[in-house]
Simulated assay, not measured.
Amino acid sequence: MKEVYITKISKFLPNRPISNDEMEDKLGIINGKASKGRRIVLRNNQIKTRYYALDDDGNVTHNNAQLAKEAIEQLFDENFTSSDIDLLSCGTSSPDQILPSHAAMVHGFLKCDNVEINSPSGACCSGMNALKFGFLSVKSGQTNNAIASGSERISSWMKGHIFENEIKHLQALEDNPILAFNKDFLRWMLSDGAGAFLLENEPNGETPLRIEWMEGYSYAHELEACMYAGGDKLENGFLKPWSEYKTSDWSEKSLFAIKQDVKLLSANILKKGVDSLKRALTKHDLKPSEIDYYLPHISSHFFKDKLYQEMVDNGVEIPWENWFMNLSKVGNVGSASIFLMLEELAHSGKLKKGQKILLSVPESSRFSYAYALLTVC
């Protein structure tokens, strides 16, 4: 088995940073009324700026595959060109279309040579699953290198016009025409961007990071769907897909909008997260005190203190001074967030040889978790 190193890291954040006060202008007001939930959500998540693939007039500047392509192209130099890629593995929560696959579309924009492609589905863990596929491919010797990416273009899913038919339908029924909080909530949480890693079987680059192991856990056998799109959840918890609805229901119910069961999220995301963390640390006989940098993908600062207390209560406390996050600056970029965190840390000048970095990514869709341990070489 080969060793696997992250030898280059890149990011692409489209356009300019968007402040909290600009968000509703960018995404649009629904039914002529400002969102009642926006200030509450922003106060809790403590995100100050984020990025959208929209210009100042609200026009789309990049699709998802183009965001990934922009990040990946920054990995190329005279020592590694697009012609050298063996494997392209691209994860996302928000593909531009159902078919072709996301990685196929990214490959199309790159216009490089023939390569193997992989498109893991899912939400935030899709980026880590893209990384794991590349890691296993290089480790097994199947390929000498791999590019893994995580990217999101979620802004166009959250624009006000997406919900216009639903509001009109509620008005026709003489119901209160206010967007349900489980849909409005995520409009103020998610944003656009992309990150990419180059994986190689030799420790090239200035500060290569060796991937020691990766682990993943799912709790779908215990819990129903929590975050979903392309369907609606029935009272019994069953997720009914868009293909079983009438086409008129697609817009009247905003079936393709992303929705979050906030109560289910709060009751389980931290508990299952720490349970999976304990499983990973125990399996690899890793003590929390041996982790120099802990990079948790947290959707909101609302969960930060609660996560720490859950870790303390379960005997897996990682000291605050070892945590590294950039949520407040770049926002919650789903599958790309862990790439953006590691990119900032790797280019900070803080890393020292021998240090251990733990990547931690939860996915609330149906409660999945992914981990990776890295060593600075």
Rank of each mutant, 00 (worst) to 15 (best):
T81I: 02
S83N: 14
A71H: 02
V60I: 03
S82D: 09
Q97I: 11
L88N: 10
F80T: 02
F76W: 09
F80L: 06
N79M: 06
S94K: 03
D84G: 05
P95N: 05
Q74C: 02
Q66P: 03
L54S: 12
E73Y: 04
N44V: 01
S89F: 05
D56T: 15
I85M: 06
T81P: 02
Q66T: 01
S82C: 12
N63T: 01
S83C: 10
A53Y: 07
I85V: 15
N45K: 06
N64L: 11
S93V: 09
L87T: 00
L75M: 07
I47K: 03
D84H: 07
G58N: 07
N63S: 02
Q46A: 15
S94G: 14
I72K: 00
A65I: 01
Q66V: 00
G58W: 09
T92F: 11
Q97A: 14
Q46I: 08
L67T: 03
K69Q: 15
L88Y: 07
Q74M: 07
A53K: 07
D86L: 01
L54D: 09
D57G: 12
D57W: 02
Q97F: 13
F80Y: 14
L87E: 02
S82Y: 03
D84S: 08
I72N: 00
S82A: 09
D56F: 01
L75I: 08
L67G: 10
F76R: 08
R50T: 10
K69G: 06
R50K: 13
G58Q: 04
L67R: 10
D77P: 04
I47F: 06
E78L: 13
A71S: 15
I47C: 13
K69P: 01
T92D: 03
E70H: 12
T81E: 04
D96P: 12
Y51S: 04
T61A: 11
N64C: 12
S82G: 15
N45I: 00
N64G: 10
N45R: 09
V60L: 14
A71D: 02
E70R: 12
